Simulated assay, not measured.
Amino acid sequence: MEKVYIELKVVDGYPPVRVESVWAEKVAENVYKVSNIPFYSKQVCLDDEVRTSRGIDGEAVFVGIESDEGNSTVRIIFFGDNESLSLLILADLSGMGCSWEGLSKKFFSVNVPENIDFEQIVGYLEKKSEAGVLDYEYGMVRQ
Protein backbone atom coordinates (compact mmCIF):
# COMPACT_ATOMS: atom_id res chain seq x y z
CA MET A 1 0.00 0.00 0.00
CA GLU A 2 1.10 3.52 -0.77
CA LYS A 3 -0.37 6.95 -0.20
CA VAL A 4 -1.88 8.88 -3.09
CA TYR A 5 -2.11 12.63 -2.48
CA ILE A 6 -5.14 14.57 -3.71
CA GLU A 7 -5.15 18.36 -3.87
CA LEU A 8 -8.33 19.84 -2.40
CA LYS A 9 -10.14 23.09 -3.10
CA VAL A 10 -10.49 24.99 0.19
CA VAL A 11 -13.41 27.42 0.45
CA ASP A 12 -13.96 29.50 3.59
CA GLY A 13 -11.54 27.30 5.54
CA TYR A 14 -13.15 23.99 4.57
CA PRO A 15 -11.87 21.42 4.29
CA PRO A 16 -9.29 22.10 6.99
CA VAL A 17 -6.47 20.69 4.82
CA ARG A 18 -5.24 21.49 1.30
CA VAL A 19 -4.19 17.91 0.53
CA GLU A 20 -5.76 14.58 1.47
CA SER A 21 -3.93 11.29 1.30
CA VAL A 22 -5.66 7.98 0.69
CA TRP A 23 -4.23 4.49 0.93
CA ALA A 24 -4.02 2.81 -2.44
CA GLU A 25 -2.69 -0.36 -4.02
CA LYS A 26 -0.49 -0.07 -7.10
CA VAL A 27 -2.08 -1.87 -10.07
CA ALA A 28 0.10 -0.53 -12.91
CA GLU A 29 2.71 2.14 -13.53
CA ASN A 30 1.22 5.36 -12.09
CA VAL A 31 -2.19 3.68 -11.53
CA TYR A 32 -3.51 2.90 -8.05
CA LYS A 33 -6.72 1.42 -6.62
CA VAL A 34 -8.08 3.53 -3.73
CA SER A 35 -8.32 1.37 -0.60
CA ASN A 36 -9.99 3.67 1.91
CA ILE A 37 -12.96 6.01 1.89
CA PRO A 38 -11.89 9.64 1.34
CA PHE A 39 -12.82 12.12 4.05
CA TYR A 40 -12.63 15.33 2.05
CA SER A 41 -12.07 14.63 -1.65
CA LYS A 42 -14.95 15.13 -4.06
CA GLN A 43 -12.87 13.59 -6.84
CA VAL A 44 -12.46 9.93 -5.87
CA CYS A 45 -14.26 7.10 -4.09
CA LEU A 46 -13.34 3.78 -2.57
CA ASP A 47 -12.14 1.24 -5.19
CA ASP A 48 -11.55 3.85 -7.93
CA GLU A 49 -8.47 3.31 -10.02
CA VAL A 50 -6.63 6.62 -10.27
CA ARG A 51 -3.85 7.96 -12.48
CA THR A 52 -0.96 9.65 -10.73
CA SER A 53 2.21 11.54 -11.46
CA ARG A 54 5.26 11.80 -9.25
CA GLY A 55 5.57 14.80 -6.97
CA ILE A 56 8.72 16.67 -6.02
CA ASP A 57 9.56 14.10 -3.32
CA GLY A 58 8.58 11.08 -5.44
CA GLU A 59 5.11 10.78 -3.93
CA ALA A 60 2.09 9.62 -5.99
CA VAL A 61 -0.05 12.67 -6.81
CA PHE A 62 -3.61 12.27 -8.10
CA VAL A 63 -4.05 13.32 -11.74
CA GLY A 64 -7.41 11.77 -12.69
CA ILE A 65 -9.72 8.77 -12.67
CA GLU A 66 -8.60 5.74 -14.66
CA SER A 67 -11.79 3.75 -13.88
CA ASP A 68 -14.47 3.83 -11.22
CA GLU A 69 -16.62 1.19 -9.54
CA GLY A 70 -19.71 3.42 -9.37
CA ASN A 71 -19.39 4.04 -5.63
CA SER A 72 -20.46 7.29 -3.98
CA THR A 73 -19.23 9.00 -0.81
CA VAL A 74 -21.21 10.81 1.87
CA ARG A 75 -19.72 12.47 4.94
CA ILE A 76 -21.47 12.68 8.31
CA ILE A 77 -20.85 14.84 11.36
CA PHE A 78 -22.73 13.91 14.52
CA PHE A 79 -23.94 16.51 17.00
CA GLY A 80 -23.85 16.07 20.77
CA ASP A 81 -22.03 13.42 22.74
CA ASN A 82 -24.36 10.42 22.32
CA GLU A 83 -21.81 7.97 20.94
CA SER A 84 -24.29 5.08 21.28
CA LEU A 85 -26.71 6.84 18.92
CA SER A 86 -23.91 7.51 16.44
CA LEU A 87 -22.91 3.84 16.48
CA LEU A 88 -26.55 2.81 16.01
CA ILE A 89 -26.87 5.03 12.94
CA LEU A 90 -23.59 3.71 11.52
CA ALA A 91 -24.85 0.15 12.15
CA ASP A 92 -28.07 1.01 10.28
CA LEU A 93 -25.99 2.27 7.33
CA SER A 94 -23.93 -0.92 7.40
CA GLY A 95 -27.15 -2.93 7.42
CA MET A 96 -28.23 -1.05 4.28
CA GLY A 97 -25.02 -2.17 2.52
CA CYS A 98 -22.71 0.79 3.18
CA SER A 99 -19.28 0.81 4.78
CA TRP A 100 -17.77 3.64 6.78
CA GLU A 101 -14.58 4.99 8.33
CA GLY A 102 -14.20 7.42 11.20
CA LEU A 103 -11.81 10.34 11.40
CA SER A 104 -12.97 11.15 14.94
CA LYS A 105 -15.84 10.19 17.25
CA LYS A 106 -18.09 12.60 15.35
CA PHE A 107 -16.85 12.72 11.74
CA PHE A 108 -17.35 9.76 9.40
CA SER A 109 -17.07 9.03 5.72
CA VAL A 110 -19.54 6.55 4.22
CA ASN A 111 -19.15 4.52 1.04
CA VAL A 112 -22.39 3.83 -0.84
CA PRO A 113 -21.77 0.97 -3.31
CA GLU A 114 -23.16 1.22 -6.83
CA ASN A 115 -25.80 -1.46 -6.17
CA ILE A 116 -27.25 0.35 -3.12
CA ASP A 117 -30.18 2.77 -3.46
CA PHE A 118 -28.45 6.13 -2.92
CA GLU A 119 -31.77 7.94 -2.43
CA GLN A 120 -32.68 5.54 0.39
CA ILE A 121 -29.39 6.33 2.17
CA VAL A 122 -29.84 10.09 1.71
CA GLY A 123 -33.47 9.85 2.86
CA TYR A 124 -32.37 8.08 6.03
CA LEU A 125 -29.67 10.70 6.69
CA GLU A 126 -32.10 13.53 5.96
CA LYS A 127 -34.50 12.24 8.64
CA LYS A 128 -31.65 12.13 11.15
CA SER A 129 -30.58 15.62 10.08
CA GLU A 130 -34.11 16.98 10.54
CA ALA A 131 -34.09 15.44 14.04
CA GLY A 132 -30.94 17.44 14.83
CA VAL A 133 -28.76 14.35 15.29
CA LEU A 134 -26.32 14.92 12.44
CA ASP A 135 -25.53 16.78 9.27
CA TYR A 136 -24.18 15.32 6.06
CA GLU A 137 -22.62 16.36 2.79
CA TYR A 138 -21.85 14.71 -0.50
CA GLY A 139 -18.39 13.74 -1.58
CA MET A 140 -18.29 12.20 -5.06
CA VAL A 141 -21.77 11.03 -6.09
CA ARG A 142 -22.17 8.61 -8.99
CA GLN A 143 -25.61 7.07 -8.51
Rank of each mutant, 00 (worst) to 15 (best):
M1K: 10
M1I: 10
E2T: 12
E2K: 15
K3Y: 09
V4Q: 02
V4K: 11
Y5N: 11
E7S: 07
K9Y: 10
K9I: 11
V10R: 12
Y14W: 13
Y14C: 03
V17Y: 10
V17L: 10
R18E: 14
R18G: 04
V19H: 08
E20T: 04
W23T: 11
W23Y: 14
E25I: 13
K26F: 07
V27P: 01
A28P: 03
A28C: 02
E29N: 08
E29I: 01
N30M: 08
V31G: 00
Y32F: 08
V34P: 03
V34C: 03
S35E: 14
N36V: 13
I37Y: 01
P38Y: 11
P38N: 02
Y40Q: 00
K42E: 07
Q43S: 09
Q43M: 11
V44D: 02
V44F: 05
C45G: 01
L46G: 06
D48Y: 11
E49S: 08
E49I: 11
R51L: 09
T52V: 14
T52E: 06
R54M: 10
G55W: 07
G55A: 08
I56G: 00
D57T: 13
D57Y: 08
D57G: 15
E59W: 07
A60V: 03
V61Y: 09
V61C: 10
V61F: 06
S67I: 00
S67Y: 00
E69K: 14
E69Q: 10
E69P: 00
G70D: 00
S72Q: 04
T73G: 07
V74I: 15
V74M: 08
R75A: 04
I76N: 07
I77A: 02
F79S: 05
D81S: 15
N82K: 11
N82E: 14
N82S: 12
S84M: 12
L85I: 12
L85E: 15
S86H: 09
L88M: 14
I89S: 12
L90Y: 02
D92R: 15
S94W: 04
G97V: 01
C98K: 03
S99T: 15
W100D: 04
E101V: 09
G102I: 13
G102W: 07
L103Y: 13
L103C: 05
S104I: 06
K105V: 00
K105W: 14
F107H: 08
S109H: 03
V110P: 02
P113A: 01
P113F: 04
E114A: 13
N115G: 01
N115P: 05
I116W: 14
F118A: 08
E119V: 10
Q120E: 14
Q120V: 10
Q120C: 08
E126H: 13
E126T: 10
K127E: 15
K127M: 07
S129V: 06
S129N: 12
E130P: 11
A131W: 05
A131V: 00
A131R: 06
G132M: 03
G132R: 06
L134D: 04
L134A: 06
D135V: 11
E137S: 00
Y138D: 04
G139A: 05
M140I: 07
M140A: 01
M140H: 07
V141L: 07
R142F: 05
R142T: 07
